[in-house]
């Protein structure tokens, strides 16, 4: 996998992420990707409201954004295989996202071992200084050609 150029890896990760049906359903767009880092945004949409009294987006939609962004960061990492699956993901919610504003997630894959990729991410709305949520996750990084990492979890 290391034989692929960083540009090629980023391109594969971009294509894969943009082909995910649930990501299109949530209106996500991949703004930046490459070298183990990804930036994905999700516009405000009334269909994803979690609290109708305030109009705040549901935490689950933020989870979906975080999971996608973390996965994309792993796939674009030079040392990770082109396909991955979430092992675990922890999300801490700091504050509700401001209604009417898009939510942006930035994920960094900071370490890849022989079998596991480690990722952290932060989600923001228009106020960059006060994060909406942070995430930490581990993802599969199965390099053996006989087993696709997705199968390792089935």
């Amino acid at each position: 996998m290391k034989s692929l150029s960083p540009e090629k890896k980023a391109e594969i990760a971009r294509r894969f992420t943009e082909a995910i049906p649930h990501c299109s359903a949530l209106g996500m767009s991949l703004d930046e990707i490459g070298e183990g880092e990804a930036l994905i945004s999700m516009p405000y949409d009334t269909r994803f409201i979690g609290d109708p009294r305030t109009g705040v987006i549901h935490g689950g939609a933020v989870s979906a954004l975080m999971d996608t962004c973390c996965g994309a960061a792993v796939m674009s990492h030079p040392d990770a295989p082109a396909i991955t699956a979430t092992i675990d993901l922890r999300i801490d919610y700091m504050r509700p996202a401001t209604p009417g504003q898009a939510i942006r997630a930035r994920a960094t894959c900071y370490r890849v071992t022989k079998s596991v990729a480690f990722v952290r991410a932060v989600a923001m709305d228009d106020d960059d200084d006060r994060p909406v949520a942070t995430a930490t996750g581990t993802f599969t990084a199965d390099h053996s050609p006989s087993r696709r990492s997705s199968e390792a979890l089935s």
Partner: peptide, 13 residues
């Protein structure tokens, strides 16, 4: 496969 974020949202709900 079901999206990991959907799984997370389902469990959180």
């Amino acid at each position: 496969a079901i999206h990991g974020g959907v799984t997370a949202a389902f469990l959180e709900t």
